[in-house]
Structure formats: structure tokens, C-alpha cells
């Protein structure tokens, strides 16, 4: 399902046009991402939990060059689906 298809199906559900929806979806995602970026877990009922995790800085050893490389810390987004979603998908 591509973005356009997603918007189309969303418009069918909400009764709004795709033109209306597109900026709204973008803004919603923005709000969603900001919540995550501030380090909070966003749990969507019936769907799953979104969690941003900070990966600490670590050293990596390159055996061929025998040198250590520092990999800087980064933030990853982790998603864990809920049990209901699992049931739905596996049913």
C-alpha cells in the first residue's frame, strides 16, 4: 500500500478529500514524531507501542585494519505490535 492508496482509503473512512487529508496527515505525523522525539512512548490501542530508544556510543573494532572506530550515539524508533494486532494479522 503506497502513500496515495493509504490516503485514499483514509479519505473513504473519514469522509474527507485526499487534498484535505494530505496536509493533516503530515501534521499528525509531525505531532506523533515530536511526542516520540521527546522520549515518550506512544501507545496506540489495538495497534502497538512506538518507542524511541537511544543507542549509546560504542566502540567498533575493525579486525582488518585493527583499528577502533567510535560509533556515535543515535536514536532509533522501535515498534512493538500489540496482541490484538497480532491476532488480527495471524487470523
Amino acid at each position: 500500500m503506497t502513500n496515495t492508496e493509504f490516503i485514499k482509503s483514509l479519505s473513504e473512512k473519514t469522509g474527507m478529500t485526499a487534498e484535505q487529508l494530505e496536509p493533516m496527515v503530515a501534521q499528525f505525523i509531525g505531532a506523533f514524531a515530536r511526542e516520540l522525539a521527546s522520549g515518550r512512548v506512544v501507545s496506540v490501542q489495538g495497534f502497538g507501542n512506538f518507542e524511541s530508544r537511544e543507542k549509546a556510543e560504542r566502540k567498533m573494532y575493525n579486525p582488518t585494519t585493527k583499528s577502533y572506530k567510535i560509533i556515535p550515539k543515535k536514536v532509533t524508533l522501535n515498534f512493538k505490535m500489540s496482541a490484538t494486532l497480532k491476532d488480527k494479522i495471524n487470523s
Binding site: 499528525f28 505531532a31 515530536r34 511526542e35 512512548v41 490501542q45
Partner: peptide, 13 residues
């Protein structure tokens, strides 16, 4: 840290 439900996200949105 703290859990945020979809409702609160929608609210901020």
C-alpha cells in the same frame, strides 16, 4: 519514561 496514548497525540495535533 511516560506513556502517551494516541488520544493525547491527537490532542496536541
Amino acid at each position: 519514561s511516560d506513556k502517551v496514548t494516541l488520544q493525547s497525540v491527537a490532542e496536541s495535533f
